[in-house]
Every structure is written in structure tokens, then in C-alpha cells.
Design a protein around this nucleic acid. Sequence first.
DNA 1: GCCAACGTTGGC
DNA 2: GCCAACGTTGGC
Length: 154
Amino acid sequence: MSTQYWLMKSEPNVYSIDDLKREGRTHWEGVRNYQARNFMRDQMNLNDRVLFYHSNCNPPGIVGLATVSKLAYPDFFAWDSSSPYFDPKASPEKPIWMMVDVDYEAHFSKIISLEQLKNEAALAGMLVAKKGMRLSIQPVTQAHFDHVLEMAKH
DNA sequence: GCCAACGTTGGC
DNA sequence: GCCAACGTTGGC
């Protein structure tokens, strides 16, 4: 299976790329959207590459790279009643929600802001730049991924 | 803090 | 199964 490319959003005041660098690996818990879950469950493969995106901050944008290091498995925070991600409908027998593990790869030397992404002709059609796009896990084409890497060099 | 966009829930 | 009401996301 060839490498696939993704963009994953995190609010830096909840979990930032600095947190991921310090920990090396994290489980991507708390996804409570079926489409995003299905991407993780049905399509993500080991070593898929991830653009790490900081949302709900100023400025929002892509701050670095990560890789998928464990295939989807039940998000056990869903049945932990003390977790902010608790879902009373989920249980170990019926997990509902899934997560993958993600490894730190690199920081970009500086953030590639959402504004830059929107202004970049080569990234036309990239989901993250679309108005009203709230999906927290998005597929990225190889061409767009490669172009983001190029932008990160400059 | 506002609010547009979107997803989910639940009454009917 | 429609759709209004509600909750959430996330840019601004």
C-alpha cells in the first residue's frame, strides 16, 4: 500500500506539536465525527504522513509533520466518564469511536498560515482552505503535500 | 466574543 | 424520513 497523506487538526492549547515532540508519540483521541473516524478506521496505514495543523489559534496553520504509527483501535476515552471525550453510548463492547497513534516527525521552521495556504495557487482545492471546512482529519493529495513541504523550506 | 457553517438529534 | 432546533467548530 502506497503512502497516503493527511492533515490533522489540533488546538494548540489542548495538544500542540510541541507536546507531540516532547512525547514522541500520542494517541489521537477525541475524534467524535463519523467522517473523520472513518478516515482513520478505513484508510489510514502505517507510515502515512500527516500535516500537523493548529486550529482555533492565531494564526491557524500547518506547523509540522507527523506519521501514523499505529492503525486504528478503540478510543477508550469514550467510555471514561471523567474524560472530556466521554460518550455514554460507547463501551468496550461497542467502542463507536476509534483513534490512531501518531509519531512526531518535524517542526516547520515557521508556521504556514491558513492565509498563506489560501493564497497559494498550487494548493487550489485543498480542503483545509475551503470555507466552512470543519473536518478535523482530511485527506491531502500527494501534490498538495509535496507543495506544502516546498513552502516549508522557504 | 461573534457567528457562519455544518453535524446531530428528536418530534412528528 | 423530513426538518427545526440545537450544539460544535473554528476563523475572524
